[in-house]
Design a protein around this nucleic acid. Structure first.
Length: 417
RNA sequence: GGAGAGGUGGCCGAGUGGUCGAAGGCGACCGCUUGCUAAGCGGUUGUACGGGUAAAACCGUACCGUGGGUUCAAAUCCCACCCUCUCCGCCA
């Protein structure tokens, strides 16, 4: 949520910033509803003040043992009028809130309107044979059973089998070990279901159609563990001294992604359930950049240790998620697909989510503000698996396991040998 | 899922219709004080929205799990729901 005061005080600035991204409501509408709301509140407050005084007077009369029936009859009318205004006010307040919640986060001033590749790392592998894509490799090495998954649950799901399942588990342990032991994150294993309000706080209810809902309970399968982690302190007051708070979680993520058929849907590329290690930091607003850079480098470290070539791309505000102010994507090079695959998205959401879930920050000077919440994948597995398989494939159809992953893969050097 | 108990400020905890934004305690902050490892004394200390201000001060309203209701008046009475704890059931 954007600070409503900021909208009121700098409407032109807000309009200009929001023009850079998809925004379903107009700032002018927000402003006019706000004005109406303030007017109504002033009226209601005055009326209620009078009512309170009248009631107090009645109390006094009664305590003194005097007759208050006349005063009570008179006050009844005042009470009715106040209630009428109460109803009107809460209606307009709800409308105001509703509009506010539909406004996407303001883009960072530094964000460019075109996606921009900032830098890259590693060398694309070269082959003296025709490299296969991951679907072929998975089938030949028995790593994923797409047929079974399709029959069992439906299209665009994966069932990892044998060394494929082991690889998945190895990556989870590898990433979690790295982030907890070397990068200082606290590991969380959260529920993968969330209430609507929790998802809404994260900003994900704006993509309601993308979430799986349960039939009998008002719960949703989380599209990312960001949903779970950014709500770790909902309703709480954090102390400046305890920042930054750093959390990591390995969970399955669920996305319906209706309407994305046709583009890059082969194999593991875009599936309805995927696994991901997420990184979230709660940071002091003044130190968000350090937290942002840290999350980015934490994610990069995974790829460096696994020797996977990648590039960092600054996302345009139009591309960024509803809740994000600044986003850098990390794209992995996949040699079989001969394409870049997004494996991580690092975002600064500023105080957007903290305002929504009422996470606040008590500063040393006593002031109460909202902390900034940042997140990033560290990283998403199906695509990591695609890149590992395609980039490390050998002429004989086996796949070399990156050195750092071997301890997690029963010490094996190759998949398929 | 069933039965019972409970949800009050940063924390603990009192409060069954008006004098309650809420006793008392703890913690925190400020001041004073004291020769013995830190204690004593005094004071301050919630949030949101609106008004007001250069900014404060200040003023108003709301908030005692959430949402409704009764009443001139609700932390207090009524209804529904949510959550926590205990016991039972079910279950990995």
């Amino acid at each position: 949520m954007i600070d409503p005061k900021r909208i009121r005080e700098n409407p032109d600035e807000i309009k200009k910033l929001l023009a850079r991204r998809k925004c379903p409501v107009s700032v002018d509408e927000v402003l006019s509803v706000d004005e109406e709301r303030r007017k109504l509140q002033a009226e209601r407050d005055t009326l209620r003040h009078d009512l309170k005084q009248a009631s107090d007077a009645i109390g006094k009369l009664k305590r003194e043992g005097k007759d208050a029936s006349e005063a009570m009859a008179k006050t009844k009318e005042l009470s009715a009028k106040t209630k009428e205004l109460d109803v009107k006010l809460s209606e307009i307040e709800a409308r105001f809130e509703g509009l506010l919640w539909q406004l996407p986060n303001l883009p960072d001033p530094a964000a460019t309107d075109e996606d921009t590749v900032l830098r890259s790392w590693g060398k694309k592998p070269e082959f003296d044979f025709e490299p296969k894509d991951h679907v072929a490799l998975c089938e030949e090495l028995g790593l994923v059973d797409f047929r079974y998954a399709a029959e069992y649950v439906g299209a665009r799901f994966a069932a990892y089998t044998g060394d494929g399942a082991l690889l998945q588990r190895a990556l989870a342990n590898f990433c979690l070990d790295l982030h907890t032991k070397e990068h200082g994150y606290k590991e969380v294993f959260p529920p993968v279901l969330a209430r609507a309000e929790s998802a809404d706080a994260a900003g994900q209810l704006s993509k309601l159609d993308d979430m799986y809902a349960l039939r009998d309970d008002p719960l949703y399968l989380i599209p990312t563990s960001e949903t779970a982690l950014i709500n770790m302190h909902m309703g709480q007051e954090l102390k400046e001294e305890e920042l930054p708070l750093k959390y990591t979680a390995y969970t399955s993520c669920f996305r319906r992604e209706a309407g994305t058929y046709g583009t890059q849907t082969k194999g593991l590329f875009r599936i309805h359930q995927f696994e991901k290690v997420e990184l979230v930091q709660f940071a002091h607003p003044d130190r968000w950049r350090a937290a942002f850079d840290e999350i980015l480098s934490n994610a990069e470290r995974v790829l460096q240790l696994l020797q996977l070539p990648y590039r960092i791309k600054a996302l345009s505000p139009a591309e960024a998620a509803f809740q994000a102010s600044l986003t850098f994507d990390i794209d992995l090079w996949a040699a079989g697909a001969e394409d870049w695959l997004e494996v991580s998205s690092v975002s600064n959401c500023r105080d957007f989510q903290a305002r929504r879930n009422k996470t606040r920050l008590r500063l040393k000077d006593g002031n109460l503000i909202y902390p900034y919440i940042l997140n990033g994948s560290g990283t998403a597995f199906p695509r990591l698996i695609i890149a590992i398989l395609e980039n490390n494939q050998q002429p004989d159809g086996t796949v070399r396991i990156p050195d750092k992953l071997r301890p997690y893969m029963d010490g094996k050097d190759y998949i398929g040998k």
